[in-house]
Design a protein around this nucleic acid. Structure first.
Lengths: 141, 141
DNA sequence: ATTTATGCAAATAGTTTGCACACGT
DNA sequence: ACGTGTGCAAACTATTTGCATAAAT
């Protein structure tokens, strides 16, 4: 029994072909962040039969089960907002998006993490979640 | 001639009623962040005649002219993403969203700002923009 | 055999656009 | 009077949902 099968079971999800394929795709892809449509096309291209609606449904289930993390990178680039998904590997990290290439880089900075908690605390709150995206360009010269 | 009239002129926008009303509304409202629809309703309620499409068009123009800043707070709360707008007062700040009340608090933290620049630099990039949202809850106890 | 998932097509929500008319200068 | 802005309705995009069929246990 495959590793993916076990992950699905553990998440309380019946092990079906579409779910397996999507999970495998996300694990194998070098491009760590994919939109629903990219996943859909990739599966069609590799010969699988799947519906776009199923991709969306499965991704939502995966998100609920914490198998996957959903992001909305609004780089203010004009085009309609689109969600993209990445495998949820347990480790928290933030994102840096290159405005020239669209490349997504992951990073963690403990100082920023700590400061965020402190700031929330200063205002009388507990920090539950946060979303940090740095929009960057290759350093000139 | 009103302050708002001057702002519009300076932005290169013809001074029209809808634009004036939207600008005034954003200046007067205590709720600093409003969605297109909230603005639309507020204007109707106050007796103005305006179309929702116009609200969207004007807000886009305002954004291009840097009169306004657009945000997409994806609090992962399920419901479809909706943009909200705030007056662009020149000062940069980040946001804290209370998951219980939906309240939006603004803050600036120089340490976080600095660290962001340093992190981008470490990866060989220049920081152009960033988006930081802390999702918080009132401190328990 | 029974429950749950899938695929398709139609529905939805937010936002944008084409076009005839109205407004600002 | 001229060019631009507006309102309405229709278009569009990403995503969700209803329903009859198909697959998983």
């Amino acid at each position: 029994m495959s590793e993916e099968t076990r992950e699905l079971r553990k998440a309380g999800l019946k092990v079906t072909l579409p779910r397996l394929r999507i999970l495998q795709l996300l694990e194998e892809t070098d491009q760590k962040h994919m939109t629903a449509d990219e996943i859909y096309r990739a599966l069609l291209d590799q010969g699988d039969e799947i519906g776009l609606a199923t991709v969306y449904r499965v991704l939502n289930q995966f998100e609920t089960a914490c198998l996957v993390k959903k992001h909305m990178f609004d780089d203010g680039s004009g085009r309609p907002p689109q969600a993209c998904y990445e495998l949820h590997d347990g480790d928290h990290h933030d994102h840096m998006v290159c405005l020239d290439t669209g490349e997504v880089i992951e990073f963690v900075d403990e100082e920023i993490e700590r400061r965020q908690r402190e700031v929330a605390d200063q205002y009388g709150y507990d920090l539950v979640e946060h979303s940090l995206v740095l929009y960057v360009r290759p350093r000139k010269k």
